[in-house]
Amino acid sequence: MEHVALLAATLCYLFSFGHTLFALGANRFRPGRFNFIAMSLGAAAQGWYLSMRGAVEHSCPIGNLSETLIFLAWSIALIYLVIGPAYRLSLMGAFTAPLVLLLQILALLLPETTPASFFRPNPWVETHAALSLVAYGAFGLACVAGLMFLVQEGQLKSRHPAPIFHHLPPISILSEAILRLLWIGLLGLTISFAAGLLAHLAVAGGKFWFSLLIWLLYAAILTGAKLGALTGRRFAIAASAAFLIALLLLPVIQHLSARASS
């Protein structure tokens, strides 16, 4: 059943992405419910998979990199389902779907490993890890909004906008969405660190320093934005690049966490 859930989620995201690509290619795109429904079903299927894994492991199902990536993809999809309609960010689903799909496919391609059981002794560790991934989800969506900003800004600068321009949201709205998502992410990461302290996790070692590096990176971006030093295009690039760095560091942090627990 776990495989069925994963396959269903993958197909939903694939449909969402494919449908938008086809509609845009045929110049027949209309903001509608299809993307939202497909993403909702995808997130529901992922949630089903994660709940099954959680029941098996008796803890938050992020014991190996594959589960971590699926949990992250699920977080991104869930945050999109909340943020997308609230901001009326047309096409955000189309930009989110490939990222979620990519994470999902990566998770499926990874060799199966036995999940580490580093949560069982302490629920604060579980809270720490889960909140970190939710924060990553917010950063992921900020990256998506950043990419949308760059596409739309490029369209505006070109002075010969392509049809996609009419469907993308205004850059001011995207900028605002990036800012709020980064704040949500940073807040989540901060609470996650606090939970880590309550769990008496080691304030040393590679995992700690890498995590702190990500926190500092996002704090620096938000400070730059607050001071007016990082605005518009540079802000969008920073939000997108920071997530790429965070995503590259995720397997390292996952590996160091698993090693520390064994």
């Binding site: 739309q152 321009f165 205004p170 001011s172 709205i173």
Partner: peptide, 9 residues
């Protein structure tokens, strides 16, 4: 008007 909307919302 449309361009202004795409910049400022």
């Amino acid at each position: 008007v449309e361009l202004a909307g795409k910049i400022f919302g």
